[in-house]
Write a protein that binds this DNA or RNA. Sequence first.
DNA 1: TATGAAAGGTTGAACCC
DNA 2: GGGTTCAACCTTTCATA
Lengths: 159, 159
Amino acid sequence: MVADGLDELDRYIIHSLQLDARNTPAREIAEAMDVSPSTVRNRIHRLEEEGYVRGYHLDIDYERAGFQLYTLIICTAPIPDRERLAQEAVEVPGVVSVREIMTGAGNVHIVAVGTDSDDLSRIGQDLNALGFEIVDEDIVRNEYSHPYHGFAGDDSRSN
Amino acid sequence: MVADGLDELDRYIIHSLQLDARNTPAREIAEAMDVSPSTVRNRIHRLEEEGYVRGYHLDIDYERAGFQLYTLIICTAPIPDRERLAQEAVEVPGVVSVREIMTGAGNVHIVAVGTDSDDLSRIGQDLNALGFEIVDEDIVRNEYSHPYHGFAGDDSRSN
DNA sequence: TATGAAAGGTTGAACCC
DNA sequence: GGGTTCAACCTTTCATA
């Protein structure tokens, strides 16, 4: 099964908001799915409350904004501590994303934005202090994201 | 200087929208910064037009939504083709994120969401067909993101 | 960058299936 | 429980200065 507890309307809502979370009125989704706008708003609230939707974030071009040090820091954390450390890492100033990888050395991928190399050294030290071992560090040249196609219903109405 | 061409109002707008891009009215930002709501709206449009803000996306808990195969595919692309291939990769159905890494083997990190292992094999084949060499593949156990603190007004590192 | 009127979106309560 | 309706309220748009 594709999506637990989510019906076609939920999937279409997620799809629409993935494309533009700020400028997509409920009415627009409602018309496409032939329900009332309130139904769409009720569903959005349910998706938020039940944790399917964790938030609405900006996609920022950090490079254009003048932060040339957009860095991937590959770390190793002991498996029993990995989840807790990952949650602590995301609170380190400058860290914008943390991925916990299932296996292997380099099981936590952290992306940090820095203004200069001192800033990145400080981030590295903070991560070390938390208990990470840093195994590699590289500049991220670019990042692209794309809405997941699988939420777009049966495709008969995907844009 | 922290951010080229961005003043304190722009940074505060970015910060606010990073926290909640869907439910933050311009009026709220305007009051905090003591300008009119239309000034805030004009600035938001400028940030979009000039490419600082690339979009507004949902932060979805793919695991809760029933997609247990949230996978990091580490690939190598020849440097001259890297950018073009990265842009093509993001269009492969199931791919949700692509990071171009500056150096080394594994210079493109792709995250894909799959419903089953056939789906992921198909994605791997598609990436191969584009010209990527796949060097590693791992399940992403969890992913967290956090607004960049540096946009939050002038106290540069206390988020 | 600000203002103000018109257009359009959201909210919450009452109602129906 | 989930969907709908409607009126009051809030937000944005657009023209204007």
